[in-house]
């Protein structure tokens, strides 16, 4: 089993600064210290194009570019970076659409630290 590289670059995308801070702080507690941030899909895509990320954690509901559009754009560019959607959109059709677009996992807000850890483990492996 390959050990998870905790020095990987992670991109946290959310239009609420509070949520960015929550996720970054929880990641820090789990030992992931290299987290960048973006406040919409467009800004995130620019960062993804310029830097090598090991994980994207993105909200869905953002303007002007949503999380699902970001996911489609990332996958459309051939990038297979692990992508976790963290959103209050909890309808089955949303989850299915995200899955169809190539999401690796899905967290429904509000969430707790244990859920985040479980999802990270399922996407990255045990750490």
């Amino acid at each position: 089993m390959v050990a998870v590289n905790k020095d990987m670059n992670i991109l946290v995308v959310d239009d609420y600064q509070t949520m960015i801070r929550i996720i970054k702080n929880l990641l820090k507690q789990l030992g992931f210290n290299n987290a960048d941030e973006a406040t919409d899909g467009g800004m995130a895509f620019e960062k993804i194009s310029a830097k090598n990320y090991g994980l994207i954690i993105s909200d869905w509901n953002m303007e002007p570019m949503t999380g699902i559009d970001l996911l489609k754009k990332v996958r459309g560019s051939g990038n297979k970076v692990p992508f976790i959607m963290v959103t209050a959109e909890s309808k089955t059709e949303n989850v299915l659409a995200a899955r169809e677009a190539g999401v690796n996992n899905y967290i429904v807000k509000p969430f707790n630290a244990d859920t985040l850890k479980t999802k990270l483990t399922s996407v990255l492996g045990e750490f």
Partner: peptide, 20 residues
């Protein structure tokens, strides 16, 4: 202390949900 702080971070998520 770390556990208590984690709980506070989790609870702060209310701002995102109520904001939306």
């Amino acid at each position: 202390l770390a556990n208590a702080v984690t709980s506070i971070y989790e609870a702060c998520g209310f701002q995102d949900i109520t904001g939306q």
